[in-house]
Design a protein around this nucleic acid. Structure first.
Lengths: 117, 117
DNA sequence: TCGGCGTATCGTCAATCGACGATTGCCGAT
DNA sequence: ATCGGCAATCGTCGATTGACGATACGCCGA
C-alpha cells in the first residue's frame, strides 16, 4: 500500500506465452496443504517464541515456558498442543513432568517445503 | 498423537543446568512477530497455491488465478491482498490489467527467519 | 463517448482462533 | 494414603478469518 512501484515487474503477458507455460502445472494440493499447516502452526508470535525457547533449551517443561511468558498456563498448554499436532514438537508422555522438545526432522521438512516455493 | 515415544527425547533437567542456560536468552520479539506474520500469510492452502502459480509464471493477472481456482473473484482478490500486505507479492498498479508477481527478496527473508529457528 | 472487462471494496454470515478460569487427572513426595 | 504441584481439557467469550454476492471504479477498444 505504501509501495510506489517505479519499475513494473510484471506487465500482462500475451495469451500465447501463457498457454505454453500452462502445460507444466505442478498442482500438488498435498504439499500445499502440508506447507499451509506448518505455517499455521507458527503463525503466532507466541508459538514462534516457544519454538525458540525449546530450540535453545531454555525451557523444556510447560511450567518453564509459562514462567517466560505473560500468559496463563492453559493458554501455553494450548499453544503446545497446536505445535504438537503439527508435529513440530514432541513430548515424553511420562506423568506430571512433561519434557518438550523440537522435532528437528519435521522442522527440516518444513524448511524444504518453503524452499520449494 | 499417534506417537509411541519409545526413546524419550527430553527428560526433565536439573534446576542448575537450566539456570546456567537461561543466561543467554535471545528474546527477539520483532523477529518472532515478523516470522509469525509471514507464516500467517501462507497459512492457507489457497495462498500457497497462488504463490506457486505466481512463482511458476502460470498466472499473473487476478482473473487467471480465478480461472485456476474454484473460488469467487472477490475471494481470490482478498487472498492476494493478504499476500501483498505481507510483502510477499507485488502488483503493478496500472488500471484494470493488474500484473502480480512474487517479491523474491521478501520470500528469501522469510526463509532466513525460518532457518534461524 | 460509451460499453465492457478486470479489480477492489463493502457488508454479511458462519466458522475458527486466542485467551482465560475452573476443573480433572497424574505421579512423587511426605 | 494422602497431599501438592504440573499439565491437559472443558466451556465461554470476543475478535478474527474465509467465503460469498453486490457494488463501485478505471482503463481500453469499438
Amino acid at each position: 500500500m505504501a509501495r510506489k512501484t517505479t519499475t513494473p515487474c510484471c506487465p500482462p503477458e500475451s495469451p500465447a506465452t501463457r498457454a505454453a507455460v500452462l502445460l507444466a502445472a505442478p498442482d500438488d494440493p498435498v504439499a500445499d496443504a502440508q506447507l499451509a499447516a506448518f505455517a499455521k502452526a507458527i503463525a503466532h508470535p507466541t508459538r514462534v517464541r516457544i519454538l525458540r525457547l525449546l530450540a535453545h533449551r531454555e525451557a523444556r517443561m510447560c511450567s518453564h515456558i509459562v514462567d517466560e511468558l505473560p500468559l496463563a498456563q492453559s493458554t501455553v498448554s494450548e499453544h503446545l498442543r497446536i505445535l504438537r499436532a503439527a508435529g513440530l514438537v514432541r513430548a515424553n508422555e511420562s506423568g506430571p513432568r512433561v519434557g518438550y522438545c523440537i522435532v528437528p526432522a519435521v522442522l527440516t521438512q518444513f524448511k524444504h517445503l518453503l524452499d520449494d516455493l
